[in-house]
Simulated assay, not measured.
Amino acid sequence: MILGTCQFDAHRAQLKNLTTGDEWLLPRAELQVLKLLLASRGSVVEKHKLGAADDEHPALTDSSVTRAVFMLRSFLGAEHEHLIETVKGRGYRLRCETRRRRDKWLTLTWGKPWLVLVILLPFIVLTALHFSENYAGNGPTAPLKTVALSLPSGQKLSLISYSKSKTNNESLLLLIEQLEMGFKQCISTSWQQVYLSLSHDKQVFNITMKGDKLGQSVIRNLKLSDFRQQKQFISQTWLDEVALCE
């Protein structure tokens, strides 16, 4: 079964990224959630059904189901994480989107130059606005803070944070310190640059990690949401699950 650029082997309980060659043996929660989503592909599956008990395992908690979905999306990558759709108040749905459909759409679109122009025009305008905002006058946006780390293996790592709003600088700086402590637990890591930002409302923490694995450049995007008043994006449990270290 192909999911984006990944291949799912149900018998081996494995997801393999066909682009990078990375393989992931799915834990019980991730395996159960993915199997049930595949079995009902295109339809909404309620959260309690995704976490239902079976003959060998107890039921999963709602938080375990949520975490399993997060980990599956992380492995699928930013380009394909949308395949697992959140249906608010109901559950999750695995989209029926396939590469063939996208290729067919591209073929039809590129056969009509006027349609291509209509589609690309908003992106051209947004790109021009972005260039004007970031490069005109004052030059590119400077990082809020850059932290250089040296791990016991001798590897160098940079944490680079950006902020467009002064209202969340204090919260972002605290998150940088927490993530810095997480990386300091590593002897080595695949990541070399980590880019951080916090949304204006302080409810979404964005992390982009760039590095090298087996001689290939890799990128991992994480988006953490916390709508509580007292927010806790980073915890030791989260650090263990995300596996920052090699």
Results as ranks from 00 to 15, higher is better:
Gly215Lys: 08
Phe183Arg: 08
Leu172Cys: 05
Thr107Asn: 05
Leu126Tyr: 11
Glu170Lys: 12
Arg93Trp: 03
Ser235Lys: 06
Asn134Glu: 10
Pro152Ser: 13
Leu72Ala: 04
Leu173Ser: 12
Leu38Ile: 10
Arg102Val: 12
Leu115Phe: 10
Pro140Asn: 04
Arg99Phe: 02
Arg28Ile: 12
Ala68Phe: 03
Lys49Gly: 05
Ala13Tyr: 07
Ala148Met: 07
Ala10Arg: 08
Glu81Ala: 10
Val65Gly: 07
Ser64Gly: 03
Ile234Asn: 07
Gln185Gly: 04
Asp54Val: 03
Leu38Val: 12
Val69His: 02
Ser74Ile: 08
Lys47His: 08
Cys96Pro: 08
Glu23Val: 13
Leu149Val: 05
Leu18Phe: 12
Glu81Cys: 11
Gly182Thr: 12
Leu174Arg: 12
Pro152His: 10
Asp62Trp: 08
Leu120Thr: 09
Asp62Tyr: 03
Ala142Phe: 09
Ala53Val: 09
Gly154Gln: 04
Lys166Phe: 08
Thr109Arg: 00
Leu239Met: 15
Leu15His: 01
Gly42Asp: 07
Lys49Leu: 15
Leu175His: 12
Ser150Asp: 12
Leu144Arg: 04
Thr86Val: 10
Leu196Cys: 02
Ala142Gly: 02
Leu83His: 02
Tyr135Met: 13
His57Glu: 14
Leu198Met: 06
His80Thr: 00
Ser190Cys: 09
Tyr135Thr: 11
Leu173Asp: 11
Cys245Pro: 06
Ala136Glu: 11
Ala78Lys: 14
Arg95Asn: 12
Gly111Trp: 00
Val45Gln: 07
Trp191Asp: 04
Leu3Pro: 01
Trp191Asn: 05
Ser190Pro: 01
Lys35Thr: 11
Phe205Trp: 01
Leu37Asp: 01
Arg101Cys: 14
Ile119Val: 11
Glu23Phe: 10
Glu30Lys: 02
Leu37Cys: 03
Asp226Val: 05
Gly137Asp: 05
Val194Asp: 03
Leu26Met: 06
Arg41Val: 04
Ser158Phe: 13
Lys164Phe: 05
Ser63Phe: 03
Gly21Cys: 06
Trp24Leu: 15
Gly51Ser: 00
Leu37Gln: 00
Thr107Met: 04
Leu121Ser: 10
Lys49Ala: 15
Arg95Phe: 01
Thr237Val: 06
Ala29Lys: 07
Phe75Gln: 04
Ala78Asp: 14
Leu15Val: 06
Lys213His: 06
Lys16Tyr: 09
Ile119Met: 08
Arg99Val: 13
Ala53Leu: 12
Pro27Tyr: 00
Leu224Thr: 02
Ser225Asn: 09
Leu60Cys: 06
Arg220Gln: 09
Arg99Lys: 13
Gln232Gly: 05
Gly51Glu: 03
Arg102Ile: 13
Arg90Ser: 13
Ile84Val: 08
Leu31Lys: 12
Ser74Met: 13
Leu174Gln: 15
Lys49Val: 14
Ser188Asp: 11
Met1Lys: 14
Gln32Phe: 10
Gln32Val: 15
Ser74Asn: 14
Leu151Val: 00
Tyr135Ser: 06
Lys184Ile: 03
Arg28Ser: 09
Val125Ile: 14
Asp22Ser: 11
Ala52Lys: 09
Val118Tyr: 10
Asp9Trp: 02
Glu170Pro: 00
Glu241Leu: 15
Asp103Cys: 01
Leu36Tyr: 08
Val242Ile: 09
Asn138Trp: 13
Arg99His: 03
Ser64Asp: 11
Asp240Ile: 11
Gly51His: 02
Leu18Ser: 09
Leu179Val: 13
Leu76Phe: 05
Leu224His: 05
Asn17Pro: 00
